[in-house]
Write a protein that binds this DNA or RNA. Structure first.
Length: 488
RNA sequence: GCCGGCUUAGCUCAGUUGGUUAGAGCGCUAGAUUGUGGAUCUAGAGGUCCCCGGUUCGAGCCCGGGAGCUGGUACCA
């Protein structure tokens, strides 16, 4: 039975797309969830958590491929053999909740939700299989007023998250506008419409020329693989491109161009009217062009959006490990989905919502800000028979609200200093025989010490100079430490 | 899913035409320094050369298959 082979050690490894999250990223995620949730709550939304699992048929209609319950979602069979799946967003569970509790809840129903969602697909940079979304929705309101509100909230949420004005933009479009222009261009086949929308979604990736190829015969990617296009003829492509490149610096100007766009259809006109009303509400709220723009190139997913759609982009640039400038792209999105709740019920239940991809945004912020977490103040343990004293000192610091710990273990002073350094401790408390005799403690400000040591090449000077270090009476320890910790 | 690239120490990588004991830098541990994180010097630990099979007297290197990672693309609710 237990041969050498069986006793081979397991490889320490983990599935991709589920990254380990360390202190800095956890702190950033919590800050984002708290600040974005606070925005939602302030606008009148109520917290609701629906839990991670739903029946697949509740999510089902909008799965990428309903024949394969495992495609796109993480699904498993419950003990009653019914298929359940981890939620892939907060919107589908909300639709279920609203339909299930229709008679009990106030309409319009406004709730927000923050928590992990799971997608069973190929992960990539800043793209995970588990990530946190912070989501707000209004159910039971038709008309662009609710959409305008969501867009305003999106802008406010981005700023609450720490994106300054100009570091983010909410781009807004309308599905009906896209429908209208496709009609004008004579694209009527539903499958072809899908291909066209997907092509129009790729201006940011491939530029106008790339989109042109995808609208026509097709495009070859960098690896040499070929993507089949929508197969449109030249004048159809021209019509679509004329419309989708009508975006302008101001919302009013974009609206003017769109309204004048060739042979606008009924649904196209409706889209323009919606955007126009959204514009006037945004203006009344004082939300300017740098925060929210109208962009005919925004498409979003194809399955359930029915009206205005919008996307939040984090514009701050950062450099990757090779020093190349990079962009994070979309960190949130939303729109009107009038059919999602209605599919559980006979009567219509219009709805609109917005969701921030907190994990990606947190990763973006952590990378661009070089986030790191301060360690605890470390009380060095030098005399093993006085461990109680050291614990008491650390406790005094903790009672004052300062992160602190007494060193655990048998290592010598040098190793303890090294430990403090690696933990990112702001300071250490040193009490040995000398201090105890004099009734004082020695405090070393590690950041000040590091700064003073910069450029010091002589070890003798480094060791005897004891940069950043001072003695003080035991009774003043907490206040002196507080001053060091507080100055960051 | 489709197309490409890659896989040698914890990390970044070198390794000649197939040849004996597979290397470097960084990092890690320790000492120089009874009680001081940096720097310097010294020493040490650390390897399934991704896996399986084949060719060969001999494979990190050649051939076949597989896995993983990574980039592009598809999809992205």
């Amino acid at each position: 039975m237990s041969t050498d082979q069986n006793q081979r050690r397991p490889e320490a490894r983990k599935p991709r797309g589920f990254p380990d999250r360390t202190a800095a990223i956890i702190a950033t995620e919590r800050r984002l969830v708290d600040s974005i949730s606070a925005v939602y709550a302030r606008w009148g939304f109520e917290a609701l958590d629906t839990g991670p699992f739903e029946y697949v048929d509740v999510l089902g209609k909008f799965l990428p491929d309903t024949d394969r319950p495992n495609a796109g979602v993480f699904a498993l069979q419950d003990d009653d053999e019914q298929w359940i799946a981890l939620r892939y967003d907060h919107t589908a569970p909300l639709a279920r909740y609203v339909a299930e509790n229709w008679e009990r809840i106030p309409k319009p129903f406004r709730r927000y939700s923050a928590g992990p969602v799971w997608r069973n697909e190929k992960p990539g940079p800043f793209r995970y299989r588990e990530f946190i979304q912070c989501d707000a929705d209004s159910v039971g309101v038709a008309g662009p007023g609710a959409d305008a509100e969501m867009i305003a909230i999106a802008a406010e949420a981005m700023e609450a998250a720490g994106a300054a004005k100009g570091e983010y933009v909410i781009r807004v479009n309308s599905r009906q506008l896209l429908d209208g222009i496709m009609e004008t261009a004579g694209v009527t086949d539903p499958a072809q419409r899908g291909t066209v929308l997907r092509a129009l979604d790729k201006f940011d990736k491939f530029g106008v020329e790339g989109v042109k190829l995808l609208l026509g015969a097709g495009r070859k990617d960098d690896s040499g693989d070929f993507t089949k296009g929508a197969g449109l003829v030249a004048n159809q492509t021209d019509t679509l491109l004329e419309f989708t490149t009508a975006g302008s610096v101001t919302r009013a100007e974009t609206l003017r161009k769109l309204a004048n766009s060739v042979g606008m259809t009924a649904s196209g006109m409706q889209g323009v009217r919606d955007l126009s009303e959204i514009d006037s509400i945004l203006n009344a709220l004082g939300i300017g062009e740098e925060s929210v723009s109208f962009d005919p190139q925004i498409v979003r997913g194809l399955e359930y959006y029915t009206g205005p759609v919008f996307e939040a982009e984090f514009l701050r640039e950062f450099r990757d490990t090779d020093g190349n400038p990079m962009r994070f792209g979309s960190v949130g999105g939303g729109g009107r989905y009038d059919g999602l709740v209605a599919r559980f019920r006979g009567e219509p239940a219009p709805a609109t919502g917005f969701s921030v991809g907190v994990s990606r945004l947190a990763a973006a912020m952590a990378v661009s800000e070089g986030a790191q977490v301060d360690g605890p103040v470390l009380v060095l343990v030098l005399d093993k028979d006085k461990v109680g004293d050291y614990f008491a000192m650390a406790n005094d610091l903790r009672r004052a609200g300062i992160r602190a710990e007494a060193y655990l273990g048998a290592a010598g002073m040098k190793a303890q200093m090294k430990y403090a350094d690696r933990r990112g401790s702001p300071a250490v408390v040193i009490v040995g025989g000398n201090e105890r005799e004099k009734g004082v403690v020695t405090i070393k400000d590690l950041n000040a010490g590091a700064a003073a040591a910069k450029g010091m090449t002589d070890n003798e000077a480094w060791r005897s100079g004891r940069p950043g270090q001072f003695e003080c009476p035991r009774a003043e320890m907490v206040e002196r430490i507080r001053a060091i910790v507080g100055q960051k």
